[in-house]
């Protein structure tokens, strides 16, 4: 296959950036999207150019490093699939592909397709954990967890932190990400003690980072490569209301 790429190139945070056009030749359907970019980068290097910077690591859809807008859609056309797991069989000979970084106030571009997502870590720092010191835990089977709860917690916990939800959202909200962690911990008996403080602090940090509000658009759910559901946002909102009521001074 032969493809035409229009790739966002930006030298650094202060550069204004622009699209560059590249021809990708000898692409085969079994290649992953990132392997196609490897091919383009190798040609660029051999011909004296500078390769396109993009993030990746596991290349199996679990580390959350990769992430780019492919034809205006986070991670590209295939649902429930991260860019590294997208294969070129989803495209056809002669296609034009536009490749851009996540765009959100809270994610400054560092170079080309690489953005700074450290705001996600700071949301976790605000309360995305259970406070348990190493060594202080009771026996693993001391507290039975109903299988449905464990499964529900797991489903929320599968978020890979790639930030496609933010990139998809017209408000650049990170509510899907935040709610997935809130829901994961709220489904476990171990997470109850800090449940309401957690939601308050995480939401406050979310707002402080410059993410927008959720207006129930649902684009995040569509874009999520792990199928995280917006039901968690509803759940977060319920906990938030309760927390706000609890939090009222006596």
């Amino acid at each position: 296959m032969k493809l035409t790429l229009h790739v966002w190139r930006q030298k650094g945070p202060d550069d204004s950036g622009r699209h560059e056009r590249y021809e990708a030749e000898d692409v085969t359907p079994d290649m992953s999207f990132l392997e196609m970019l490897d091919l383009v980068n190798n040609r660029l290097t051999e011909t004296g150019g500078e390769p396109i910077a993009f993030e990746h690591d596991c290349r199996e859809g679990i580390c959350g490093s990769c992430g780019m807008m492919i034809n205006g859609v986070p991670h590209g056309p295939k649902s429930m699939t991260s860019a590294c797991q997208l294969h070129m069989r989803s495209f056809k000979d002669g296609d034009e592909i536009w490749i851009e970084p996540w765009k959100a106030l809270a994610f400054p571009v560092l170079k080309d397709l690489v953005v700074d997502r450290s705001s996600f870590d700071r949301i976790i720092q605000a309360g995305g954990y259970i406070s348990v010191r190493t060594g202080s835990a009771p026996d693993g089977n001391a507290i039975p967890v109903p299988k449905e709860d464990a499964d529900a917690a797991f489903d929320a916990a599968t978020c890979i932190g790639c930030a496609a939800c933010v990139a998809a959202c017209p408000n650049a909200s990170a509510m899907l990400f935040t709610s997935a962690k809130v829901a994961h911990l709220a489904h476990m008996p171990q997470g109850q003690t800090e449940r309401y403080d957690r939601v308050l602090s995480m939401v406050a940090q979310h707002d402080a980072e410059g993410f927008g509000n959720c207006t129930n658009h649902g684009a995040c759910q569509e874009a999520c490569p792990k199928g995280i559901s917006i039901d968690y946002i509803a759940q977060l909102n319920r906990d938030l209301i309760k927390a706000t009521l609890l939090d009222r001074p006596e």
């Binding site: 954990y129 259970i130 348990v132 190493t134 835990a137 026996d139 693993g140 917690a153 916990a157 994961h184």
Partner: peptide, 13 residues
């Protein structure tokens, strides 16, 4: 295992 369970790791049940 005890530590991970206490942290809320959603092991299979």
């Amino acid at each position: 295992i005890d530590q991970a369970v206490a942290q809320g790791v959603p092991f299979a049940r």
